[in-house]
Amino acid sequence: MATGGRRGAAAAPLLVAVAALLLGAAGHLYPGEVCPGMDIRNNLTRLHELENCSVIEGHLQILLMFKTRPEDFRDLSFPKLIMITDYLLLFRVYGLESLKDLFPNLTVIRGSRLFFNYALVIFEMVHLKELGLYNLMNITRGSVRIEKNNELCYLATIDWSRILDSVEDNYIVLNKDDNEECGDICPGTAKGKTNCPATVINGQFVERCWTHSHCQKVCPTICKSHGCTAEGLCCHSECLGNCSQPDDPTKCVACRNFYLDGRCVETCPPPYYHFQDWRCVNFSFCQDLHHKCKNSRRQGCHQYVIHNNKCIPECPSGYTMNSSNLLCTPCLGPCPKVCHLLEGEKTIDSVTSAQELRGCTVINGSLIINIRGGNNLAAELEANLGLIEEISGYLKIRRSYALVSLSFFRKLRLIRGETLEIGNYSFYALDNQNLRQLWDWSKHNLTITQGKLFFHYNPKLCLSEIHKMEEVSGTKGRQERNDIALKTNGDQASCENELLKFSYIRTSFDKI
């Protein structure tokens, strides 16, 4: 039985969820670079991206490699990797027998973001014989899940209580170790020597080791999670996991709180800001991140802002960003909400898709409305799209047979046209069989910064309504002859009103 693990408890099935942008060198404390989270699957090609990484700022997932063999891993080693800020997950990587050479110096898994409450997941690794993470000293947050690894031993010899604050939620089941077939031998045991430290858990006094050649490092209890030197002297209180010299914040392997210019500090002093819960960055760093993602459509890219001495992905609820200094300031009234469309555009074809934009005031991208039916549609669209004030790209209304009016965009005031449909149009209306009105132009103002209007096959939309939009939106004169079809717009509506004058002759039985 794995020490510190839980057996036999019912657990939810383990679901495996399925960018080499360097964020800056980590400095003297770390020998390499800070790398983003990685999802490495199918083959070993991307694994080489770990070569210079000291910190993975995010998670590391290595999974679904069915053609790899043990010899493929023999020359692979990433000794610079010290810390993973989120979680480490391995799933069905064939041929991998140990992690001792792959990650010989991995010391800390912070667990800032977890995989279903777990910071370390080893699942269905069919050839893994031992973990071998002999320098792993601290899992700051989260638990361990090690399950269905039929060859995995050296679990009962690990004292997880020396690595985690609590072992109650560890789930370590259905491994070879369960069948008591392992016969784990710690260093020196074969020669009758006791080389590794022994600890007591559940009444068992057991030597602690990761492999037959690597003991588990056990520091004096007084050192807590700070770690200790090879001689057993406690590291500085700002260290986490390990250090090369005692009581020196510049000799830590990793930091308990924050890293700044080669030393570990309790908090980031001005003019620095907390970033990702582990390091200090200056304003320029946060500003660069903001600008890199301002026009990016890459998933996970955030326009970072500053709030409460932190550089964070977005302002919290009730705050909006001051564009001059990136500071989050309290909103006066309802907060603006910028919604970034991942692929640059979004099609609204149902109430469900409209709900995804609920509360958005600025759309960074283009909207395509293609709704053919739905219950209580006008009210639903207004509830979900009615706060949109600005669209950076274009607005396209296409084959939306259920629409009679666009009044559900009740606050839309600006279409920038930074991206144009077919390279020309910022407003595009095609084949809307029941569209009769755009907006009530006596109450609604709309500016279209650039781009043209396109109207074709809107049989109940009168040309007068379209011409009014040209005047109000500032697009009059931009359109070419064929942009607004004269014969297919309003051709099934009563669009022309003329005053009919009647004269009559009164007659009676005795007068003409």
Rank of each mutant, 00 (worst) to 15 (best):
N135I: 00
C186W: 04
L64M: 11
I40T: 02
V218R: 12
N195T: 07
R256D: 09
L102K: 00
L152Y: 00
E124R: 05
T199D: 12
D169G: 05
E147S: 06
I185R: 14
P104A: 02
S77K: 06
P31T: 14
N170M: 08
I62F: 14
R113P: 02
D248G: 02
G192S: 10
V173L: 13
L29Q: 06
S324I: 01
L102C: 02
M38N: 09
L76M: 09
R162W: 14
I56T: 01
N135L: 02
V253S: 14
E33G: 08
V144M: 10
L128Y: 00
Q303N: 11
V121C: 15
G183L: 04
C239F: 00
L120I: 04
I82S: 07
L64Q: 02
N242L: 12
E33Q: 06
F205N: 12
A230K: 15
L128T: 03
L106A: 00
I84L: 03
S77L: 11
G188R: 06
F78E: 00
A254T: 06
E168W: 15
I109M: 01
Y273K: 07
D169M: 15
D261E: 13
M83E: 08
I163V: 11
Q287P: 07
N52I: 02
P220Q: 13
C182W: 06
N257Y: 06
H48V: 13
L90H: 00
S323E: 13
Y30C: 12
L131M: 05
R256Q: 11
T267S: 11
Q216G: 07
D101P: 12
A119Q: 01
P79M: 03
E238Q: 12
V218W: 05
P70D: 15
D165Y: 10
K224C: 05
G95S: 08
E181P: 03
H48K: 02
G111E: 00
N52R: 10
N195Y: 07
I84C: 02
D261G: 03
R74H: 15
C255W: 00
T107D: 01
Y154P: 04
L289C: 02
G111C: 02
T329R: 12
F205V: 12
P197R: 15
K148G: 02
I109Y: 00
H290Q: 14
V265F: 03
H290T: 09
V121A: 10
G262W: 01
L131R: 00
D159N: 13
D86V: 00
A119V: 02
G318P: 06
M83H: 06
D177T: 03
F283H: 03
C328H: 01
S112E: 15
C215K: 07
T229H: 03
F73V: 12
H236L: 01
C328Y: 02
Q287V: 10
K217C: 02
P197C: 11
H214A: 02
F275R: 02
I185Y: 04
V200Y: 13
Q204P: 10
C252A: 00
D86Y: 02
E314C: 13
N309R: 08
N52W: 06
L240N: 10
D261V: 09
P36T: 02
C182K: 09
D165I: 09
S284H: 05
P36M: 15
P197M: 12
A198E: 15
S317H: 15
N149G: 03
I56G: 01
G142L: 01
D39K: 15
E151W: 04
K251Y: 11
K191P: 10
V34Y: 04
K67Q: 01
H302R: 07
M65F: 09
N42M: 08
F275L: 07
W210V: 11
S324V: 13
G300I: 11
I163K: 02
S98D: 01
S296K: 08
C286W: 01
K148L: 12
S317N: 07
L174T: 10
P197A: 14
C264A: 00
H212N: 10
E207V: 06
F103A: 01
L60S: 00
Y259P: 01
V108F: 02
Q204I: 04
R141T: 01
T211D: 05
P197Q: 14
Q61R: 05
N135Y: 02
A156L: 11
T199V: 11
I82A: 11
V55P: 00
P79C: 02
H127S: 15
H214K: 01
V265P: 01
F78S: 02
F285Q: 06
S112F: 08
T229L: 12
T211R: 04
V55S: 02
L326E: 05
E97V: 11
I163P: 00
D101S: 05
P31H: 13
K217L: 09
N195H: 09
H127L: 15
Q204V: 11
R298V: 06
K217T: 14
T211M: 02
K176A: 13
V108H: 13
C286D: 05
A190Q: 04
M321T: 09
E314I: 03
Q204F: 10
F258G: 03
P269E: 01
P104F: 01
Q61A: 14
Q61K: 11
L89P: 00
T250Q: 08
D248W: 02
D165H: 05
S161Y: 13
V93K: 00
I139G: 00
V108R: 06
T85A: 05
R279C: 07
Q61I: 14
P70S: 08
G333E: 13
P334G: 15
I306N: 01
N309L: 05
I122A: 12
N175W: 09
D248E: 04
N105G: 04
F285Y: 03
C286H: 01
D277A: 14
V144S: 06
S54E: 06
K310S: 05
I185W: 15
R110W: 03
R69H: 15
P316S: 06
T157D: 07
N257E: 03
V305K: 10
C286M: 01
A254I: 01
L174G: 08
T85Q: 12
S324F: 12
P31S: 05
A230R: 03
I222F: 15
T199W: 07
R141K: 04
N195I: 08
L96R: 00
H307I: 14
Y304T: 13
S54D: 03
W160N: 01
L50G: 02
P246C: 11
G203L: 13
C215Y: 11
L90K: 01
E130R: 14
Q61S: 07
L155E: 05
Y30V: 08
E130C: 03
N105L: 02
H48A: 02
T320V: 11
F123L: 06
N195W: 12
A254K: 01
K129E: 09
N202I: 04
L131W: 01
F115G: 01
I185G: 15
D159M: 06
C264Y: 00
L81V: 03
Y171H: 15
K176W: 14
G183Q: 09
Q303M: 14
C243R: 00
D288V: 09
A198G: 05
I82W: 12
F66G: 10
T189A: 06
F103R: 02
T85L: 08
H291P: 02
A156Q: 08
R110H: 08
E97W: 13
N282L: 05
F116P: 01
L63T: 08
R298H: 07
F91E: 00
K129P: 00
Q216R: 03
Q276Y: 09
F116A: 10
I158Q: 03
T157C: 13
R46I: 08
N322F: 14
I62R: 00
Y171R: 00
L174V: 14
R92Q: 05
I158E: 02
T68M: 02
K251N: 07
L76E: 01
L260S: 02
L89R: 01
E180W: 06
K191A: 14
K294W: 10
D184S: 08
H226Y: 13
F116H: 14
G300S: 12
P270E: 07
P36W: 15
L174A: 09
C209K: 10
M38S: 03
H214W: 08
V93I: 07
L233S: 12
A156R: 08
I40N: 01
V34S: 02
E57K: 02
R41V: 15
P36V: 05
V305I: 08
S143H: 14
L81P: 00
L120Q: 00
E207Q: 06
V121M: 05
N295A: 09
G192W: 11
L289I: 15
D165A: 03
L50V: 06
T211V: 10
Y273L: 09
G183E: 14
A119K: 00
A119C: 02
T189S: 08
L60A: 01
W278M: 02
W278E: 05
N325R: 08
M38K: 07
E124I: 01
V173C: 14
S143R: 09
P334K: 15
P249W: 03
E180L: 08
M65Y: 07
N282M: 11
N309P: 03
L81I: 02
N308I: 07
L327V: 02
D184Y: 09
H59F: 04
D248Q: 12
T199C: 07
L60G: 00
